[in-house]
Design a protein around this nucleic acid. Structure first.
Lengths: 246, 246
DNA sequence: GGGGAGAGATGCCGC
DNA sequence: GCGGCATTTCTCCCC
């Protein structure tokens, strides 16, 4: 497909809100939240029906450049042998420019997909599990409230221990770091202040914790309990079962 | 292209490490860090030369499903009218399965792109600007050190004020929130402890701060100074200039 | 490779 | 829309 035909096809497909996919040797500049410049190379470009556009290099999980949904796009022949695509998103303050030198392929088509993804094994699942069964965390623990709102953010799970101390529990589905400990401390500070109580404990629940974060946690007098998110428990059970079967 | 030809072309292109792009009505399941299920719909799929694969719905800036670089892929006819692609990444513990019902288009090609993106206007640029010119933040401020390491993380800029107090400065390139305040507090706590001093102040520098975060900041006795990242300053100057010209 | 923190983070939900 | 926060975050840098 020559560049003139590319311009016409692109414009038609864009007007019809089709999913446009093409590959080209191109340069990209972006101006908005920052300024970026990407010199000539081969990239695959997706322009979705919602107006979002992504530029993909041959490596990496994320687009090297992009504009969000609701962006307006404009295509023109720049001279005999180049094409320029200007993309504006006024509310976002974003502007992107692609200069196409060579087109490798072009495709566009109507798409139908109303489905949402179903996902399990999130932090919320972990919080639910602990709220339902707080003794997983500590003997004698009783759940009080989930997602308790404070002015300093919300607490994953609030419990009482067997000595009737309030216990603030913060869950992380991956290895806990400094910011998790800071978050826990922030909630405890706030509860101490608003409820005017001092017999309050903090527990950080995660599959693991970094060494330094654990030291900080200990400095603050809080506790770490290692628990995997629900999905990992299932996986573990299955693998143990399989091992048994062999 | 019929499904049998799709399987053959896919396998050939994959072996040659070409950039594969296709669109299909398909189902996707993923098992790894979580478990996901996505039922039948139209998606565009990218398989890059590095082994990473992404599934894109017609909307959104990010892939709905993906596996990272270094993943192994396997394609087969499932029965007369479906194709199954199995993707494994053993080190990551990831497994993905795509069942293709209808193929909309297929393309693959060699790509060349060794270029890295150039980017300006980051938090580091902001930190540099403040280190070079600390009086932007406060009259009489003198820079001491950039990226001072503490056991609780590193400090963006360390200064002394005109009364010889140590001043810890934390920069954010976007509106500051609770976690920025928590971060500042963590560093100050640590400096107080390790250096055994109490005449230490905290300043949070950002273009803006949320109301609640500012209350928390005030509770802790720290200070907020509104400064835009370098690029925004330029932008502001330009827009003021333009206004003057009209 | 782990730890720590930024990112043009993105996306989701709540108010 | 802002706020608060998780994310299969991803990416980079430093130890």
């Amino acid at each position: 497909m020559d560049l003139q035909k590319f311009v016409i096809n692109f414009a038609n497909s864009y007007r019809k809100k089709e999913f446009i996919v093409f590959s080209a040797e191109c340069e990209v500049t972006y101006s908005g939240k920052t300024e970026t410049k990407l010199s000539l190379g081969d990239r695959v470009i997706l322009l979705k029906p919602d107006g979002s556009l992504q530029v993909h290099q041959p490596t990496g999980n994320v687009p090297i450049n992009y504009v969000k949904e609701g962006t307006d796009h404009n295509i023109n022949l720049l001279d005999g042998n180049r094409v320029i695509i200007n993309s504006h998103n006024i509310p976002q303050g974003d502007y992107m420019q692609i200069i196409v030198h060579t087109l490798h392929f072009f495709n566009s088509h109507k798409t139908e997909d109303g489905h949402k993804i179903q996902l399990t094994g999130t932090e919320k699942d972990m919080s639910d599990m602990i709220y339902e069964n707080p003794t997983l965390v500590e003997q004698g623990l009783k759940s009080v409230k989930q997602e308790e709102q404070t002015n300093y953010g919300f607490i994953d799970v609030l419990c009482r221990d067997e000595n009737n101390n309030l216990v603030v529990i913060e869950c992380k589905r991956v290895k806990a770091d400094f910011s998790a400990v800071s978050q826990l401390r922030r909630y405890i500070d706030r509860v101490k202040e608003t409820k005017g109580i001092t017999n309050i404990r903090g527990i950080l629940v995660a599959p693991a914790i970094t060494t330094n974060a654990e030291m900080m946690l200990n400095d603050y007098g809080y506790k770490f309990v290692a628990i995997d998110p629900p999905r990992y428990l299932e996986k573990l059970k299955k693998s143990q079962k399989s091992l048994g079967e062999f």
